[in-house]
């Protein structure tokens, strides 16, 4: 696996993503849900909201990195807040 040039942070990143996917798969099997309509006026399931949230998180972090000099952890915190907002409202 050395050719993949793994590092601890990237490994942790993928582990978190994989764990999130696993948890959401479990949730979908154990507690099936009906799609709901939120502020985007389209039907979304838990998985849809996770996808929208994660994608937005990536863009928020990139914007934070490009526009400010403040520590990236602050950007991450804001994006996590946004993820919560997405789960609540979308």
């Amino acid at each position: 696996m050395s050719w993949m040039a793994w590092t601890w942070p990237t490994m942790a990143f993928f582990a978190i993503i994989a764990a999130t996917l696993a948890v959401f798969t479990m949730l979908a099997i154990r507690y099936p849900e009906t799609p709901r309509r939120g502020i985007l006026r389209m039907e979304t399931t838990r998985g849809d909201r996770l996808f929208i949230g994660l994608l937005s998180m990536a863009f928020i972090n990139l914007a934070w990195l490009g526009l400010t000099d403040i520590t990236q952890w602050a950007g991450l915190a804001i994006s996590l807040l946004f993820l919560a907002v997405v789960f609540k409202t979308v």
Binding site: W3, M4, A5, W6, T7, P9, T10, F13, F14
Partner: peptide, 14 residues
């Protein structure tokens, strides 16, 4: 797997 490798490359220099 290639995408994961790209992510790994993006935080390193070679």
């Amino acid at each position: 797997i290639p995408l994961m490798t790209v992510v790994n490359y993006s935080v390193q220099d070679t």
